[in-house]
Design a protein around this nucleic acid. Structure first.
Lengths: 225, 225
DNA sequence: ACTACCATACTTGTATGGTAGTATGGAACT
DNA sequence: AGTTCCATACTACCATACAAGTATGGTAGT
């Protein structure tokens, strides 16, 4: 999970923000959960001020909704946003992987290989949570290698919504082996400078990470808008 | 300029945020300008709390940098971010305009036509500022027509940086007529469902709105990172 | 039984005082 | 003259008190 360092990492405000965000995206705080500045401030043992700051930031990312004088809740999953997140990832990742096929720094390629090894291990151990993180890291390395970190960061904002639905899907049928093979194919294509193949693989790959929203919606109607 | 409505529009915090953002993007507050909670709170005649909130939001968008116990400044223009903003727009707008060629709601098409008329007027009046806004609106309508508003909104976050450099360029050589012709071509292509042509036009179009960064950097070295 | 009203206990929004860290300029010393 | 040290005046950060809007449950009146 990527931490945005816009506020000082050590500050109380940042800690509350990153903790809450992690809990929201991991569904530890399910969509619709009521949050109150006071309540959260008590549990974190800080005053309302840094809590409020974190709420402001989370609201900007649409992860919470603030109803003035009424309360603050973890936002429901917006199917439109999830679909748009998939759209953004498809367009940007296809473009990035094409760039990667033109030129990609050797050290980043090694990072990808190391990442793939860890993926392989995690699959054997059936460690879905770790595999999830490794998948995120894999794609981030691609953006880093193409000097598109800023792009990756704003993409993460949308991705948070997509990831919440992936989290629901996680318990069902991850099909990690398939994802691993595709990652492998993508790296190989980059090595061969085969842009067309890489793009096609990426497209397929992304179509796999997006779950069937309708099914999830039926299973957890109270989590969706 | 699009207002994000994440905070209540009426609240002091939101007002300070949107005003400051507008002033930053318009270069009314040039890159590097020192801001202080106290100073701003006095000028807006509110307490430091809502000012602080606005700083948090602006920091999240990289429009200000907060140095703890040292001060807050309007961020310098980051050439990397500007380039990435161009990259993101290129990828996403090309994809969106292709979608638009498949299907585009009639009412949005009318909005585009109205927008084009206003552009024509503004060019005659040599009203660069208004033309700038109409250009933004034109592209936003495209995203709206394809049901990609969320995408447009996150794109705006990067676009803020691009727009600051466009603002510098504004005084030089806008070449609005050329931009207008391209807008015209794009709308016609959408009507004809000619995706390939639309995409090509869009690509050219976007290559035009991005100014020569090196020149700007030389002219305003203190504005850039 | 039903309705209108109001006290009360919430909520977020705002103001303000205090704390700790940082830059700066001048005084004292070498 | 040059260097060190320290008082002072900033800064962002945090805690707390108050203001204002909202939901709710009980009560009085019909």
């Amino acid at each position: 999970m990527v931490e945005s360092l816009r506020l000082q990492p050590g500050s109380a405000g940042h800690i509350v923000y990153s903790q809450l965000k992690q809990q929201i995206v991991s569904l530890e705080l399910p969509p619709g959960t009521a949050l109150s500045e006071k309540e959260v401030s008590l549990s974190f043992e800080v005053s309302r001020t840094p809590v409020r700051e974190s709420f402001v930031r989370l609201a900007q990312e649409d992860l919470v909704v603030v109803l003035p004088q009424r309360g603050t809740r973890v936002s429901l999953i917006d199917s439109e946003l999830v679909e748009e997140a998939r759209f953004m990832r498809e367009q940007l990742e296809k473009a990035v992987v094409r760039l990667a096929c033109e030129s990609f720094p050797e050290d980043k390629l090694l990072e990808l290989e190391r990442n793939l090894s860890e993926q392989s291990e995690s699959i054997e151990k059936h460690d879905g949570k770790h595999m999830f993180e490794l998948d995120e890291t894999f794609h981030r390395i691609l953006f880093e290698g193409c000097r598109k970190v800023g792009t990756w960061n704003v993409l993460q904002q949308m991705n948070a919504h997509l990831n919440r639905s992936r989290m629901l899907w996680l318990s069902a049928d991850p099909n990690w082996t398939n994802l691993y093979e595709q990652h492998r194919e993508i790296v190989d294509a980059i090595r061969r400078h085969d842009a067309d193949h890489a793009e096609r693989e990426m497209q397929e790959h992304l179509s796999l990470i997006i779950s069937n929203l309708a099914v999830l919606k039926e299973k957890h109607p109270d989590y969706f808008k």
